[in-house]
Design a protein around this nucleic acid. Structure first.
Length: 274
DNA sequence: ACAGGAACCTGATAGC
DNA sequence: TGCTATCAGGTTCCTG
């Protein structure tokens, strides 16, 4: 589910509630979600430690604990991570509960159970290859026009697949890729190396704009996504093409089409996106 | 390098 | 109402 704007929103809404708290205990209802180390070792590493900070890299959340230990969480398709006051009913799909020293909880809920959790010393993040190999993020210093231009130039693959590749750009997912290609006026099935200078320029600005807007709107809630307090986002009300199959393009009125590209549902305007 | 498919999983929804 | 098919915001692994 969550792409970078959703994960960033979770981080922002959760950080002040958890920093300074100590993890008193953990209830693990579904041990297989813990990918490193074992569920038992995970508990041993984490219980009793104070939360120092909450960071994000791409779609990964990184909870920093004292003693330089970290908990890393990737929500995949339907993961949620949110703070719940003591006594309030748990999420229907709660899988792992972090019990805090003040009695409140942080629950990891996940209907499809595809999410992944890890705990390790902070200098062992190389164990998580998706994190270690992640490319630069939109809105970051490393993500420059030059980086995008040079990267596109040497790729013969389909632009949509490349933008989804976290090693190329960290944080984009299916919704925001469709959106930035729509804003840039680029057909999702174009070859990456076929983009003109003007198109690369439009794409660069569209990627940053779409991500910034997504964050400003607190993420896109289609179904499962909630922020760090359990609230929905509002960016679903600002989408150009995603989820708008058979509806008129907001720019030209042509009917939005949905095709399959890079193995994913892909929405675009056949008139605006060439 | 790249495309395509399968796998990992479960639940909501659309269609009949 | 109930059964079945389809689809889902992600990532990784395998084959060709």
């Amino acid at each position: 589910m969550p792409e970078m704007p959703e994960v960033e929103t979770i981080r922002r809404t959760l950080v002040d509630k958890v920093v300074g708290r100590t993890i008193r205990d953990i209830d693990i209802a579904l041990p297989r979600l813990i990918k490193w180390p074992s569920a038992g070792e995970f508990k041993a590493i984490v219980i009793g430690k104070k939360i120092i900070d909450l960071k994000r890299r791409g779609k990964y959340l990184i909870l920093g604990l004292e003693d330089k230990t970290v908990i890393v969480i990737h929500l995949r398709m339907t993961g949620r991570l949110y703070y719940t006051p003591a006594g309030v009913q748990h999420d229907k799909f709660a899988r792992i509960i972090f019990n805090l020293d003040n009695g409140d909880i942080v629950q990891y809920a996940d209907s499809r159970t595809l999410g992944t959790l890890y705990a390790m010393p902070g200098d062992e993040l190389w164990r998580i290859s998706g994190l270690a190999k992640m490319g630069p993020e939109p809105l970051s210093e490393d993500f420059t026009m030059t980086y995008l231009e040079n990267g596109l130039k040497k790729r013969k693959g389909i632009i949509k697949a490349l933008l989804l590749n976290q090693q190329f750009i960290g944080g984009l997912g299916n919704i925001y890729v469709d959106e930035c290609l729509a804003i840039a006026g680029i057909h999702p099935a174009r070859r990456a190396d076929s983009l003109s200078e003007a198109e690369v320029d439009r794409l660069f600005h569209a990627i940053n704009k779409v991500i910034a807007d997504g964050i400003e709107h607190g993420g896109t809630t289609f179904r499962d996504y909630r922020d760090g307090t359990g609230q929905s986002g509002t960016h679903q009300f600002h989408l150009h093409v995603y989820g708008r199959k058979a509806l008129p393009c907001l720019k030209c009125g042509a009917v939005i089409e949905k095709i399959e590209t890079a193995g994913r549902g892909t929405h675009f305007c056949p008139n605006c996106q060439i």
